[in-house]
């Protein structure tokens, strides 16, 4: 555990909590892509199956349970409790265009051709693109609430910090995982455009709105 890894995890946790609180406090999920949230729930479910097979640390187990629990709670709020506020018409990204290629790729390129390993690989690949329905929704409506942009920033920051964590681990521990690194780079790159808008607009007190 290094400082990048810890702050990355905390940033990830902050993102998840921000989104849950935003929906809960405003009693609305307007502007939030339910499809992205379903994909994240799928990511955590397929990655953390090792909860049943191996114990790493209390920290590790607790965080996994919190991530999974929050992911399903978010999906529940969007599709059940506050369904009336869900903006399905604007959440029109075709997720099969992500899930099918990612599924194929995880079968083709993995560390070991075993069920748990393929599911872990699937979750890594899927996580890297799971935010696309949300970004698509924002580009379609042309704007995002400020709290939603804080959520996206924390979520992007998390993977960027993990990149530094992997650099650290490579130099000091000799560890590296090519699948995680390549997917992590892809994931971080997808946020770059958003990071630019966040810094130039939101941090200067303006609402994030895209030119028509």
């Amino acid at each position: 555990m290094n400082i990048f890894r810890l702050t990355g995890d905390l940033s990830h946790l902050a993102a998840i909590i921000i989104l849950l609180l935003k929906i809960w406090k405003s009693r609305s999920c307007a502007g939030i892509s339910g499809k992205s949230q379903i994909l994240f729930a799928l990511v955590f479910t397929t990655r953390y199956l090792d909860l049943f097979t191996s114990f790493i640390s209390l920290y590790n187990t607790c965080m996994k349970l919190i991530y999974i629990g929050c992911a399903y709670a978010t999906v529940y709020l969007i599709y059940a409790k506050f369904r009336a506020t869900y903006d399905g018409n604007h959440d029109s990204f075709r997720v099969e265009f992500l899930v099918v290629p990612v599924g194929g790729l995880s079968v083709l390129i993995n560390h070991d051709f075993s069920p748990l390993e393929i599911l872990w690989t699937f979750s890594i690949y899927l996580e890297s693109v799971a935010i696309l329905p949300q970004l698509f929704m924002i580009s379609k409506t042309g704007e995002a609430e400020t709290i939603t942009t804080h959520y996206l920033f924390c979520l992007g920051l998390y993977r960027a910090l993990y990149l530094f964590n992997w650099i650290w681990r490579f130099y000091f521990e000799g560890f590296f995982d090519m699948i995680a690194i390549v997917a992590g780079v892809v994931q971080t790159v997808l946020y770059c455009d958003f990071f630019y808008l966040y810094v130039t607009k939101v941090l200067k007190g303006k609402k994030l709105s895209l030119p028509a």
Binding site: H12, S54, S57, D177, I179
Partner: peptide, 10 residues
């Protein structure tokens, strides 16, 4: 060690 960092990462 290649490809074994994930066991302790989230």
């Amino acid at each position: 060690v290649i490809g074994r960092t994930r066991k302790d990462e989230l």
